[in-house]
């Protein structure tokens, strides 16, 4: 029963959504909107489970005195304290979500700079990955290296200094061989998605059910 009911819901919902795609009538649009309105509701319930999981993992670390366990306090204290400041405490003692507040300070002065730092590291990672990828160890790797140099130089103004042929060649590589490969992958991805959706709708694929009913 626990397995059949979710599968029936998925099957009926999937078939309705498939048919709905071809019907532009208002009735069909209303059905679609009604279904999609449920998604945020489910998500908000699942968030409670997520926060519960995070708490459980870190409490376990603190209790077991696992390596680096003091850092778990750095997760748990802000996790519970910041919502208290944001939603329950008055603005006079730093509560609320406006400016100035503890929530605003932690978000704009701590979280955003840390996220920006993580993102900026990508530039260094790209350099080290490119160094590894562009070593001309074989004929194919050499072709990759030459192609990459042409495409990169074609994208920057300095490429024009070598002659008009360089930007034109770079553009040709992007427009023809590169686009052809991308389209081939996209085509395969499209078919793969369709097949996976069909397998879910008709109950062939049951991995998404987890252990329901077992």
């Amino acid at each position: 029963m626990k397995r059949t009911v979710p599968m029936m819901i998925a099957m009926i919902g999937g078939i309705i959504m498939m048919i709905q795609y071809f019907i532009p009538h208002q009735v069909s649009q209303d059905v679609f909107n009604y279904y999609t309105e449920w998604a945020p509701l489910v998500g908000s319930f699942a968030l409670v489970l997520g926060v519960g999981s995070l708490t459980r993992v870190h409490i376990h670390k603190i209790r077991a005195k696992a390596p680096n366990w003091p850092y778990s306090y750095a997760v748990l204290i802000p996790l519970y304290l910041i919502p208290v400041f944001a939603f329950f405490l008055p603005a006079s003692i730093g509560g609320g979500t406006g400016k100035p507040s503890v929530f605003d300070f932690m978000y704009s002065r701590v979280q955003i700079p840390i996220q920006a730092t993580m993102f900026s590291m990508l530039a260094f990672y790209i350099a080290s990955a490119a160094f590894r990828a562009f070593r001309a160890k074989s004929a194919l790797a050499t072709i990759l290296l030459v192609t990459a140099i042409i495409v990169m130089l074609a994208q920057v103004p300095i490429g024009d200094l070598f002659g008009r042929w360089l930007p034109d060649t770079g553009l040709w590589i992007l427009r023809f061989p590169n686009l052809a490969a991308k389209r081939a992958i996209e085509l395969g991805v499209g078919f793969g998605m369709l097949a996976t959706c069909l397998k879910i709708i008709f109950g062939v694929e049951r991995g998404w059910l987890g252990g329901a009913g077992e």
């Binding site: 699942a46 968030l47 997520g50 991995g207 987890g210 252990g211 077992e214």
Partner: peptide, 20 residues
């Protein structure tokens, strides 16, 4: 490790089921 809470719940059940 999971980023989405719904994916987390499904992944947890899926792994439990696999162990069983």
């Amino acid at each position: 490790p999971n980023r989405d809470p719904i994916v987390y719940t499904v992944a947890e059940e899926s792994v439990k089921q696999a162990y069983m």
